[in-house]
Amino acid sequence: VKVFRALYTFEPRTPDELYFEEGDIIYITDMSDTNWWKGTSKGRTGLIPSNYVAEQ
């Protein structure tokens, strides 16, 4: 598990995607895809765009 911080707010387009706000901490559990990672924030899990976060 790696810890990342959201650089921007992300509004999901599908139920599989995770909503998060700029500054949120996201725990990444799967980075197997280059563009979409699986992450958890505020008790919810979903896909996030990798270019919206920076490693802490």
Rank of each mutant, 00 (worst) to 15 (best):
E11M: 14
V53F: 07
K42C: 11
Y8M: 13
T29N: 08
S32V: 10
G23C: 07
V3A: 11
Y19I: 03
W37S: 00
E17L: 08
D33Q: 07
D24F: 04
L47F: 12
L18E: 02
A54K: 12
E21A: 09
A6S: 03
V3N: 04
E22D: 05
W36F: 08
W37E: 00
I25K: 04
P15S: 12
M31Y: 07
E21L: 09
E22G: 06
T40Q: 11
E17G: 12
I26A: 00
I26Y: 01
F10W: 15
Y52V: 07
K2C: 12
Y52Q: 05
F20P: 02
V53N: 01
I25A: 06
T40W: 15
F10R: 12
R44V: 12
A54M: 13
P12D: 02
A6E: 01
D33F: 03
T34V: 14
E22H: 06
V3K: 10
G23Y: 04
E22V: 14
R44I: 11
E17S: 05
F10G: 01
T45E: 12
K38R: 14
Q56C: 15
T45S: 13
F10A: 10
R5P: 00
G39T: 02
T29I: 14
D16G: 11
G39E: 02
Q56G: 13
I48Q: 00
P15R: 10
Q56R: 09
G46Y: 03
I25Q: 05
K38Q: 11
M31K: 07
V53H: 02
N35K: 14
Q56H: 15
R13N: 12
T45I: 10
R13W: 05
K42F: 08
E17P: 00
P12N: 07
W36V: 05
V3I: 13
T14P: 02
I28N: 00
R13I: 08
D30M: 05
T34D: 14
I48R: 02
G23P: 00
T45W: 15
V53S: 01
W36D: 01
E11H: 15
V1K: 10
E22C: 07
T9M: 06
N51I: 10
V53C: 04
V53G: 03
I25S: 05
I28F: 01
E21G: 05
Y19V: 04
F10D: 00
G46S: 00
N35C: 15
D33N: 11
